[in-house]
Design a protein around this nucleic acid. Sequence first.
DNA 1: AAGAACAGTATTGTATGCGATTATTGAAGA
DNA 2: TCTTCAATAATCGCATACAATACTGTTCTT
Lengths: 253, 253
Amino acid sequence: MPHPARPPTATKPRSNGKMAERHAPGSRAQAVYKALRRAIIEQALKPGVKLPEDSIGEQLGVSRTLVREAFGRLAIEGLVELKPNRGANVAYPTLEEARDVFEVRRGLERLVAENLAGRLTPAQSAELEAHVRLEEKAHEQDGPESIRLSGEFHIRLAEMTGNALLLRYVQEASSRCSLILAIYGRPHSSECAVSEHRQLIEALRAGDAARAAALMDHHLQSVVTRALLAPRGERDLRDVLAPYALSEGLTPS
Amino acid sequence: MPHPARPPTATKPRSNGKMAERHAPGSRAQAVYKALRRAIIEQALKPGVKLPEDSIGEQLGVSRTLVREAFGRLAIEGLVELKPNRGANVAYPTLEEARDVFEVRRGLERLVAENLAGRLTPAQSAELEAHVRLEEKAHEQDGPESIRLSGEFHIRLAEMTGNALLLRYVQEASSRCSLILAIYGRPHSSECAVSEHRQLIEALRAGDAARAAALMDHHLQSVVTRALLAPRGERDLRDVLAPYALSEGLTPS
DNA sequence: AAGAACAGTATTGTATGCGATTATTGAAGA
DNA sequence: TCTTCAATAATCGCATACAATACTGTTCTT
């Protein structure tokens, strides 16, 4: 029990004078959503694990209501699976779904590239280059930093289009990709080649929409072939336990 | 009072033996969602109107909980706007948002076209042609039927890719387009030219991905220029009332 | 009379409770 | 020993209850 002395019905922070609960009400739901989202993307919550409403709510200090709300959004984004009357799990995309996601992402980001070609302001251009330099630095010490940065590069590009819907879709596809790579990706393939980012910026600045689109397309395509190989972890208990069974001379049916 | 005799707390259908409540539990939320979605798309609920949780719930025979859940989903899809502590309205996209939606839709459907080129089974091919014939028939009597059918054509195409995510995005973009055309579209521009659908099928069957993509692109582009013109209704109260103020000699600050 | 302060009301945000559904465990029968 | 089934426990679906916030109409002040 990490929370030692919480009064029976803890629901009354009321006018707790000092209690710096500076949570705009209505944003608590959002907070829950964000917390879960990050937890999933950063793999604190691993693909497939059960997500019971009340234990999560308890952990986060909110009621099931808000947790459910968050689950709903996350389910739409494909980060949790929501089976009726059976609760929620962190999503465990199949290989097929994975391919679908990557395909859509390719289409979306090609659109980003086309949109941006020849329209980068000098400031944006500079920011992208700075970002790539960061990526380069991080790439040497290959921590998780490297992965995060190469993801962010794509998000920043989407933001620069000024198209809110496009940004949302790219973000969504991107976070699903995180999940997917967590399952099917190689241990630490650094996902994005920095040189490819460089070329892309170059084409964007030159205003060559076709080339930019093609580069983006190729770039994402190669991410798939680089990182996405055979399944690494097995989903099914059967598969997980099979080797143990064999080594003990048991015969799974 | 349309509901004459509802028992004070109607919440106990309990083990009402016969009560043919053949609603798989958990799907009632979905039912609410679908009902509202259709109501918005068919403009029974016009863009901008207020959506109070309890009156809607009452109307649909469910509690606010489910209505809120539905609102959440619809907000993500851009069909309702959800302002914190101020409730929900049917969305009223700005012209800028409208352009964003159309742009993304173009990108997505181009992807559909590329994906489908050369992969249509004979059955699918036949179905599309049948669909176009239907469109032709409906086009003559131009009812609302015509609009629905041309929308469905695009959905069917997306379905045929077998890519669930792509389908979802196209559906989403598509329903937002309905809203947008309701606001900014001409009275009865029949949205999609049937001949363009024909050409597209042709290219798909020929396996000419580039041409199919270009056709789709052009097709959607022309929908925009055909249907999307100047705002018809004004959004802002200021704009709505300005002429009235003037004619009465009032001076808006 | 115009504007500010206030009170009453309506509506939203969140928690909780109750019935229903599903999973689990243990016992009886084959 | 393996299945079948019933009782129990855990969890979900949904409604309701209560608290917090925004809106509206009124009164009071300048």
